[in-house]
Design a protein around this nucleic acid. Sequence first.
DNA 1: CCATATTCTGTAACCGCTTTCATGAAACCG
DNA 2: CGGTTTCATGAAAGCGGTTACAGAATATGG
Lengths: 333, 333
Amino acid sequence: MATIRELARRAEVSVATVSRVFNNPDLVTRRTREHVLRVADELGYQPNESARTLATGRSRMVGLVWDTGHRGPGWRHPFLQEILIGLKTALSDHGHHLLMLAAEPGAGGYARAAKRHDLDGIVFIDAGAPDPALADLAASGLPCVALDRPVTGPRATYVTSDNVGGARAAVAHLHARGRRRIATIAGPRRTWPGADRLAGYRLELSALGLPYREELVAEGDFYLDSGHAAMRRLLAPDERPDAVFAAGDQMAIGALRALAEAGLRVPEDVALVGFDDIELAALVPPGLTTVAQDKTAFGTAAARALIAMLPPSPATPHPPAILPTRLVIRGTT
Amino acid sequence: MATIRELARRAEVSVATVSRVFNNPDLVTRRTREHVLRVADELGYQPNESARTLATGRSRMVGLVWDTGHRGPGWRHPFLQEILIGLKTALSDHGHHLLMLAAEPGAGGYARAAKRHDLDGIVFIDAGAPDPALADLAASGLPCVALDRPVTGPRATYVTSDNVGGARAAVAHLHARGRRRIATIAGPRRTWPGADRLAGYRLELSALGLPYREELVAEGDFYLDSGHAAMRRLLAPDERPDAVFAAGDQMAIGALRALAEAGLRVPEDVALVGFDDIELAALVPPGLTTVAQDKTAFGTAAARALIAMLPPSPATPHPPAILPTRLVIRGTT
DNA sequence: CCATATTCTGTAACCGCTTTCATGAAACCG
DNA sequence: CGGTTTCATGAAAGCGGTTACAGAATATGG
């Protein structure tokens, strides 16, 4: 591999000049600059990133913390792929790479990895049990963006959907369809989306003048089976609900099965709204009405926020991005 | 951040000794080693990876080339997530990180990124148009693993499913169900899975003594809509097929819709087998019979192969991993 | 035309770690 | 017990860049 010294020798300039050609082009005469670039091209010169990072302390890499282990090998984010596409695209445009951290999860594993690699920033995509290590990291001043979980720090912020608003829209929609006994299958309350969607449900109920009833709330874990179980629980009491708002599409689809097993028709007997708009939602008959999230926007918004907080920007937390949701009406309502 | 010099000073040893403690522990007395480790712990010392990479030429990072752009923002690998989980897990265990390359696609973009970062190896997950840059990279001696596409080089190999065998099993199964006019919705022939599944289809037909008929072959692009269109084409002739082998589940589901639209019953009028066993397959009624691939095995096999080819292993291409497939019988047959 | 300000370029220190080579200490041995 | 080996450690030279500082070249102005 051609080094900067070799290139300098061949171009008959100093290494400093070569370095400037690449990093501060306008500090160099057009003539020399073009000459150096030409020779660089001939040599196939590529500046070495490690050397650069070592010298500058900035790696042009962003860490991605993605907790695969949380639910064993089966754990899947509903739209990790779209998020990655959004993230990668936006970061690439800014000349940053994405490093998937292979650190021991929990504790300070990610923090250590961030230091070792001189990461410029870090993005958290995970289920979101509150983690003191995340708080420390964010407090340390490293630019941090978390998805669907809160985080604060001099250069920290988060991206999330308008979970409250989306949930309210779902409930309002069911109400508009004439339903009055509206149940919910909530997500885990320790997660943000779980808590906020439940809050939205309550809020809209009271806005509509409907009572909030404990027996109309079942909690799941966002996965299909839990939706199935929750639906069965909701059907147990004498007076069954005539509508259900499930806080996630997977749970909604589980609920759909439970309803079919119980011999109930959807939407005639029970109307159903989900949340997320995963690919499946459109395909599972009769088509799941759901609150759609803007999936790639998650990634791009995260990338944008992160980039905005990168030095030399002042250490000001970027305002959180709350992405709008959109109600997609299909066959279940 | 504590540096190695600081640590050396505090532990009252030389930097060389500290370095050895971390890289060649047995070159150091147990006494000194433990002492250094203790002080390192107190200081929260973390060796800097860039400096390490610069000094050794090895980055402990593996590049991941994942072509997001191929089909516009909507392009999705049927099970990218599982592959990533497998890859990440296996590589982590070996102390390697995964770098998602933000390089201009095509040409030598990835090759350049690999050099700049001193990548230890590289993994290709993409749609797989033949790419001279990949060939060059592989030829250069950089450990390379490609998924579902061929690649050769001193340290190159690939991982793929037993596409031929899987396709044969699908066709044999349809035959066993009494079907004789078996059509196929093939994938793009320029892709490996597309070509091999078609080959398997032909092979099994002839093994069964059935004729291969051009009019029973329609080509799609692995996506849902193309399956729909292909199915309509297959239904056009007077004598319609009584079974269809679709080379991908998405296409199979598209075909399922076309069949429903045509008023045909599945499996009574037309039996259907897919390939992949995506999540949807189990959920779309009446349940799609399909050839399942071992999804996380893709990732782990790729990681294992890569690790096996990493220096100081001899520059011998690892034998390709051909993962077994498994026929999952559901409602469509 | 000279003094001064402004560009442009070069020298060299440094970023944090690895590793070769040399050295001194300890172990081995006839 | 002196001479070899072996073993543990240290000094210092890189690895390939960036950048502060200084010097040379050019432009500016009186």
